[in-house]
Simulated scan of single mutants.
Amino acid sequence: MPQLQRSAPLAEQAADALLARLAAGEWALGAKLPGETTLAGQLGVGRSTVREGIRQLAGRGVLESRQGAGVFVLALQAPEDWDQLLRRADIVAVLEARTAIEAEAAALAATRRTPVELRALHRLLDARDAHDGDVPAYVDADIAFHRAIVAAAHNEVLAQLFDGFVPRVRRAMIDMLRIRPAHRDAGADRDVHRGIVDAIAEKDAAAAASRTRSHLADLAENLA
C-alpha cells in the first residue's frame, strides 16, 4: 500500500487516497471500512489524520460515521462542489493563456537563445526536480524555468505579459497539483520539459512550440 507524500495537507491526501480506493472497488456501497489503526498503518499517517480524512469525506456525503458501529460507505465517489468546479475552470483558463504566451515564446527562444541562456535552462530544469514533493517550492521552480524560456525569446512584450500573469499562474498551478496530485507522473513530467529544452537547444522552433502546447493541453485534460 503506497504511503502518502507531503505535497498537500495530509488529511486531504488521506481523503483522496480513500476516495481512490472506493473508486477502484475496494469497498462496496454500505460496506464498513477498516478501523482507524489499520487505515493509518496502510497510509503511513497518524490516526488523527485518518480521522480528519474520514470527517472530510463524511462532509461530502461519501462516508458515514456511526457511533459505536464504525465508518460506512454511502457513495463511491464525491459529488463535485461549486468551489472546486470554479477552481478547475480558473486553472483551465490559466493554462489556455499560458499556451498563448509560452508556445510562441518557446518557438522564439529556439531561434534566439544564447549559449548562456541554454545553460540556465538546463540548470533550472534540474532545480525543478530538487523541489519535487514540496508543492509551493516546486511551482516556484517551475515558473522560474518557464520564465527563462520567455526571457530567451527576447521579446519584451511577451516577458511583460508573463510577469504580470505570474501571481495567478502560481495560484492556479498550486491548486492544480492539490486537486489532482495522483495524476502527476514525475518521470514523464521531467521528460516533457527536457524535450522542450532539447528542441530549443536544437533550434527547432516548431518542436519547441508543439511540445509546450501539448504539455499544457495534457495538464488541462488531466483535470477532467
Rank of each mutant, 00 (worst) to 15 (best):
residue 218 D to E: 15
residue 217 A to G: 10
residue 1 M to H: 02
residue 17 A to M: 06
residue 76 L to W: 04
residue 201 A to G: 15
residue 154 H to P: 13
residue 145 F to L: 11
residue 19 L to C: 05
residue 39 L to K: 02
residue 197 V to K: 02
residue 197 V to Q: 10
residue 197 V to C: 12
residue 187 G to A: 12
residue 57 L to H: 01
residue 22 L to S: 07
residue 126 D to V: 11
residue 88 R to V: 09
residue 155 N to I: 01
residue 37 T to G: 02
residue 18 L to E: 00
residue 181 P to C: 09
residue 87 R to H: 12
residue 44 G to K: 06
residue 9 P to D: 06
residue 196 I to R: 04
residue 102 E to M: 11
residue 52 E to N: 09
residue 137 A to V: 05
residue 210 S to R: 14
residue 216 L to P: 09
residue 33 L to I: 00
residue 4 L to R: 01
residue 54 I to G: 00
residue 198 D to E: 15
residue 216 L to T: 04
residue 215 H to K: 11
residue 160 Q to D: 13
residue 169 V to Q: 12
residue 119 R to I: 11
residue 190 R to A: 10
residue 72 F to M: 05
residue 87 R to Y: 09
residue 173 M to K: 09
residue 108 L to C: 07
residue 120 A to D: 13
residue 28 A to S: 15
residue 45 V to R: 05
residue 86 L to D: 12
residue 133 G to Y: 10
residue 60 R to P: 07
residue 128 R to I: 15
residue 131 H to G: 05
residue 5 Q to M: 13
residue 17 A to N: 01
residue 41 G to D: 05
residue 149 I to Q: 07
residue 219 L to H: 10
residue 176 M to T: 07
residue 74 L to N: 05
residue 36 E to N: 11
residue 198 D to F: 04
residue 79 P to W: 01
residue 86 L to S: 14
residue 167 P to C: 08
residue 125 L to I: 11
residue 171 R to F: 03
residue 123 R to F: 09
residue 180 R to M: 09
residue 113 R to D: 05
residue 187 G to Y: 10
residue 38 T to M: 07
residue 80 E to C: 07
residue 16 D to C: 04
residue 116 V to R: 14
residue 160 Q to P: 01
residue 51 R to N: 08
residue 10 L to M: 13
residue 168 R to A: 15
residue 93 A to D: 13
residue 44 G to L: 05
residue 172 A to C: 11
residue 145 F to A: 06
residue 3 Q to T: 13
residue 128 R to S: 10
residue 194 R to L: 13
residue 198 D to P: 10
residue 63 L to G: 01
residue 129 D to F: 08
residue 26 E to N: 09
residue 200 I to E: 03
residue 165 F to K: 11
residue 210 S to C: 11
residue 100 A to D: 13
residue 41 G to W: 00
residue 102 E to C: 11
residue 118 L to W: 04
residue 199 A to P: 01
residue 21 R to L: 05
residue 89 A to L: 12
residue 201 A to C: 10
residue 95 L to S: 02
residue 208 A to Q: 09
residue 149 I to C: 10
residue 139 V to Y: 03
residue 114 T to V: 00
residue 159 A to M: 15
residue 217 A to E: 14
residue 174 I to Y: 00
residue 171 R to K: 12
residue 30 G to F: 02
residue 217 A to P: 03
residue 92 V to Y: 00
residue 93 A to P: 02
